[in-house]
Nucleic acid binder design. Sequence first.
DNA 1: AAACAAATTGACTTACTTTGACCATCTTGA
DNA 2: TCAAGATGGTCAAAGTAAGTCAATTTGTTT
Lengths: 167, 167
Amino acid sequence: MRLSDTIEQFIKDLMQQEQQAEIDLKRNELAEYFHCAPSQINYVLSTRFTPDHGYVTSSQRGGGGYIRIVRIVRSAPEQLNYLLNERVGDSISAGEAQILCRQLAERKAITAKDAQLMIAATSPAALSAPAPEAVKNVMRARILRSMLLCVAQRPAEASSEVNHHEV
Amino acid sequence: MRLSDTIEQFIKDLMQQEQQAEIDLKRNELAEYFHCAPSQINYVLSTRFTPDHGYVTSSQRGGGGYIRIVRIVRSAPEQLNYLLNERVGDSISAGEAQILCRQLAERKAITAKDAQLMIAATSPAALSAPAPEAVKNVMRARILRSMLLCVAQRPAEASSEVNHHEV
DNA sequence: AAACAAATTGACTTACTTTGACCATCTTGA
DNA sequence: TCAAGATGGTCAAAGTAAGTCAATTTGTTT
């Protein structure tokens, strides 16, 4: 078994056994534990804990630094993947983004307010900066992607957002 | 937990428990209490109690010297207005945007979820497109501004932080 | 075996925190 | 008045920890 696979499993077991959808790790400790280069940990993260795999990671450098891994629970990973990879893709127009956000709200995958904010963030006004339309569409896609991942990461809301309508 | 975080929390707890928007501290006493260099206190102030964080500090040297921390009090509309017209401006970094959004949530001008969404929309990941940092900061400012306007426009929420009845 | 893909490593970079030496300002008591 | 003492401020260096990238190695496929 590859070292990367072992590390992947180790992390997943940790999350499993702590019943947590979120876990904080110390990159250097992990690397030492597995007798590997610290950057190996980054490799594992970037090949096995991506949004496509249903995870989002973040980190903090410096003293007391950490790597945080959050498993996306709010939505089925496949559906999110569809949205992210096929619907949004690498580039999307303001109009398409708006339609998508409205639909998500209508299906109660996100709240009406989330939708407003997401539409505002991807509106022509928001991106009326000095850049050709093509570049703007690329940025829009990234912004939208970023917000969708954000929504997917947060825990489901109590009563309102019942789980039949997922992102 | 980092020492700086501990000190930050300690100060906030103090203000909380005294129900005061203002507090005077003795730098050396604090440093001694936490067994750290006095300048550590300055570090905490300059990274966690800036105007962006919603605080203003002042101090007095010499005998009977002190450090005074005052929490800025503004209504939600005032705060939004200030950010839109004075603070955000034409260009803003991801870090600054994050601090401002967190601050808005802390003041309950927006919900914690709105803040997460706004941070996601202005994060480095969201704008990791082919463009120099300066251009990205300009775009970030427009995106943030667009979202702030969106929030400012929607009707004031009742007692809504609690969105049990979101639908 | 050649070609391609995946994994591993390490040098270099960036980010955040802690510490300490030296500086500036204010109060107080001869 | 003014020197001594008491504070706080600044800044740069050291310490800690994660990120990037490209070269190399290992494994798989044809």
